[in-house]
């Protein structure tokens, strides 16, 4: 893709080992958490607002017939097994997030790569436009939209899905009685848990699409080996056409 007026992209070491390992642990645990969560949801496929479920009054916000067997773990109705799988991977998911924050703070991934700068805010709209036009550059650093998406998942969606999950535990309700309160009650927390699952699903689909469109080989190499080839850049002094 290079021509005489460009310098070829460099092969840089982009992703640190801690980032790569935690990324794949998340990928695997979410692959189990989502279908086992749908299994648990199927035991009572109605979502409500408030502390309780209305049986003689209506506070439902969503009523579904339940998810089909090909998206649940296990594939047949089995709440007990769904809970075994869900809580096992929930522990892994939570410990992985704590490990990620600790390691990414000490290796400065959080500060250097994920924290938005003034420059990011300035170029955010342009970056959204570029992504919509599928003009996907390969910079040394994350683009403003990437920072927004990854930051949103790591700092908003992940903590939200964990804290709303904890709200559903009667034991944790006794430990942290204020936690379901801030979400508006246990059943609202359950509804938010479901909504965040949908958002994470949307992120997953877009994330995969971006990898495919941006060049799956280079993208996968960076999250497996750490090495990433940046886009060719115009030669210094040559005019930009």
């Amino acid at each position: 893709m290079t021509n005489s007026s460009q310098v070829p992209g460099r092969l840089i070491r982009r992703q640190k080992l801690a980032t790569r390992i935690t990324h794949w642990i998340w990928a695997i645990s979410l692959l189990f958490l989502l279908p086992s969560g749908l299994q648990i949801f199927n035991a009572h496929p109605i979502l409500y607002l408030g502390d309780q479920s209305g049986f003689t009054f209506d506070n439902a916000v969503l009523r579904l017939a339940g998810f089909p067997g090909w998206v649940t773990i296990p594939s047949t109705r089995d709440l007990a097994t769904g809970r075994v799988v869900h809580f096992f991977f929930a522990w892994i998911f939570v410990l992985n997030l704590l490990a990620f924050f600790a390691m990414s703070w000490s290796n400065r991934h959080l500060q250097k790569d994920l924290t938005p700068t003034a420059n990011d805010t300035q170029h955010f709209v342009q970056d959204v436009r570029d992504h919509l036009n599928l003009k996907l550059g390969h910079g040394v650093r994350y683009s403003p939209l990437q920072k927004f998406a990854y930051g949103g998942v790591l700092f908003v969606l992940f903590p939200l899905i964990i804290s709303t999950g904890l709200c559903m535990s009667p034991g944790m309700n006794a430990v942290l009685p204020w936690l379901p309160e801030i979400f508006g009650g246990r059943q609202t927390a359950r509804t938010i848990h479901f909504a965040v699952m949908v958002l994470l699903g949307v992120f997953f689909v877009v994330h995969l699409a971006m990898i495919v469109l941006a060049g799956p080989f280079n993208e996968l190499r960076s999250i497996v080996t750490g090495y990433y080839r940046t886009s060719p850049r115009p030669k210094k002094g040559s005019c930009d056409v």
Binding site: G69, W70, V71, I73, P74, S75, V84, F87
Partner: peptide, 28 residues
Amino acid sequence: TLPLAGCKALDFLRERENAMRQFMIRAN
């Protein structure tokens, strides 16, 4: 095909004495 194959392929976890299930249950 992952979800299709994946979920049925994991049905062995339903067996109470399965070693993988026994391991996972330790999270409780």
